[in-house]
Amino acid sequence: MKSFTYERVDSAAAATAAFARTPGARFIAGGTNLLDLMKLEIETPQHLIDVSRLALDKIEATADGGLRIGAMVRNTDLASDARVRRDYGLLTRALVASASGQLRNKATTAGNLLQRTRCPYFYDTNQPCNKRQPGSGCAAIGGFNRLHAVVGASDACIATHPSDMAVAMRALDAAIETVDAAGKARAIPIADFYRAPAKTPHLETVLAPGELITAVTLPKPVGGTHIYHKVRDRASYAFALISVGAIVQRDGSGRVALGGVGYKPWRVEAAEAALPRGAKPVADGLLAGARTTHENAYKLPLVERTLAGVLTQAKG
């Protein structure tokens, strides 16, 4: 690991100010992904700004009947919150399907959104990777890529976003609240939060350098049956091959978001109109324009079949 200086801050304003005056700084909260990458020298910050003790660890009701989840709320606490379990069951289900108990105790809401891909070539510094080293090439294209993206990928990168939580957040229409160094706040719909890889896969979100996530908001509950079905190589503690997060209403209408298929949680609102007609037309709409390799082509039928199972389960 490269050496770095360290400071702990106690306010969002102090955090963004510290970032502005220190070149090569990164925020650290749970650290479970950042430190892992620092050990491999994939991340090499010169300065760490510890934001883990900011008073952003509350889950509060919003005026419009939704919830504001502080950026520092731990995954365990978010999954356990009585309001989340009752009204946003999809979010609890996605969280408890992710990582391990130890990691969920440390990982934060904001950090979960910002975790980086688990593409093995991104992790292997002996391999070219446009995300790790822009312009170096992509070893996953033509390499071992059964875990990789089937939608939204580019000729520069076929990595997937690994978060389960983000899949639920996408189906729930979450918005990400931030503040920048000038003190300017904004709310970014999660649909607009992740950047397509295109020719610049190292740029993963629309956040500006030094912009800090302060909260994630959920609109008021939409009811329905909440199901998160994650398909993985082992029954627990593994990243998704694919996952289906769904909210299904009594009349058969609903929402679907997918994990493990692209650079972001994948949702196509237009495809959801077909939900009462079953899994196939919805899966076709979600995966329109998919580009597969011989190793990851299985993901297309797997999405359809998993969605079919989810819809059957939703009928009770």
Binding site: R8, G31, T32, L35, D36, D50, Q102, N105, K106
Partner: peptide
């Protein structure tokens, strides 16, 4: 009171 992976956290963060 919470279990964590001590390898994935910096000692200086535990003041």
């Amino acid at each position: 009171g919470r279990r964590i992976n001590s390898c994935l956290t910096l000692a200086v963060m535990h003041e």
